[in-house]
Simulated assay, not measured.
Amino acid sequence: MPLPFLTADRAFDAADDLALPYHDRDRWQRPYRPGPWRVGAAALWLLLASFVLFAAVIIAFTASAAESAVVFGIALAVIAGALRLLRVGAWVSTRGLRQVRFLGTRTTPWAEVASVRTVQQPVRWLGLPRTVQGQALILVRRGRAQQEAPVLMTTHNADFLARHGSFDRAADTIEAWAAENGRH
């Protein structure tokens, strides 16, 4: 089974002379691999889901089918949450820049993007309220003030904590997508 999220870094390394090393530019691509914190959290959620599924099987044999169905539904919700957690991040295609969050997705067409740039600012540590000094990749839309610029990713989020080289590569790739698609 092909795992396209694992080929992002290898495609970037293999195409040193290309700014945008993707074959199918119309498909939504994440220009970096999910980080170990994000994958670890999703793995823990999937482990929890396996226990809940086991409980659903036991309940199916010992209690009513309705109670088992409720527990099975809870397990499916936990699995869906773990899979959604793995999809969180910044995605690019020729249609625009997509910011996937846990509970929502926002797509900005390239025509509305004024710039994408890296700035030094206080950022949230693993999405928690605690802030630390770090870098953030921000999206500046045409006709909007800098204060409204949403943060696409940071050096201290679940994908890039302690992986500064990966953050730099991902930020450069997204900036290259914005530069190439913004002039059309």
Rank of each mutant, 00 (worst) to 15 (best):
P2I: 15
F5R: 01
D9R: 11
A14L: 07
D17S: 07
L18Y: 00
A19G: 12
L20A: 02
P21T: 09
D24H: 04
D26F: 07
D26L: 12
Q29Y: 05
Q29K: 12
P31K: 02
R33T: 14
P34Q: 10
G35H: 02
P36Q: 10
W37T: 12
R38M: 11
R38V: 02
G40T: 07
G40C: 10
A41K: 06
A41D: 05
A42H: 03
L44A: 14
L44I: 06
W45N: 06
L46K: 02
L46F: 08
L47D: 06
L48V: 13
A49M: 11
V52D: 05
V52A: 07
V52K: 05
L53D: 09
L53S: 12
F54A: 15
A60M: 13
A63D: 03
A66C: 00
A66R: 01
A66Q: 00
E67S: 08
S68G: 11
A75V: 05
A75C: 07
A77C: 09
I79G: 04
I79T: 03
G81S: 14
A82N: 02
A82K: 06
L83H: 10
L85Q: 08
R87W: 13
S93M: 02
S93A: 09
T94L: 13
T94M: 12
R95N: 12
R95P: 00
L97I: 14
Q99H: 07
Q99Y: 03
Q99E: 05
V100R: 04
G104F: 06
R106N: 00
T107I: 14
T108N: 01
P109T: 15
A111R: 12
E112H: 03
V113E: 03
V113N: 02
V116P: 01
V116Q: 06
V116K: 01
V116N: 05
R117C: 11
R117T: 15
R117N: 04
R117L: 15
V119D: 13
Q120I: 10
Q121Y: 06
P122H: 00
R124N: 09
W125S: 06
W125Y: 06
L126F: 14
L128V: 02
R130F: 13
R130T: 15
R130P: 00
R130Q: 13
T131F: 06
G134C: 10
L137M: 10
L139V: 15
L139Q: 01
L139D: 07
V140F: 01
R142W: 04
R142K: 05
G143R: 00
G143H: 05
R144T: 15
R144W: 01
A145K: 04
A145R: 07
Q147H: 02
A149N: 08
P150A: 08
V151A: 07
L152N: 11
M153I: 12
M153R: 11
T155V: 11
N157G: 06
A158W: 08
A158F: 13
F160W: 13
L161W: 14
L161I: 11
L161F: 12
R163N: 13
H164F: 03
G165Q: 08
G165R: 08
R169D: 14
R169Y: 02
D172L: 15
D172N: 08
A178S: 14
A179N: 06
A179Y: 00
N181Q: 13
R183E: 11
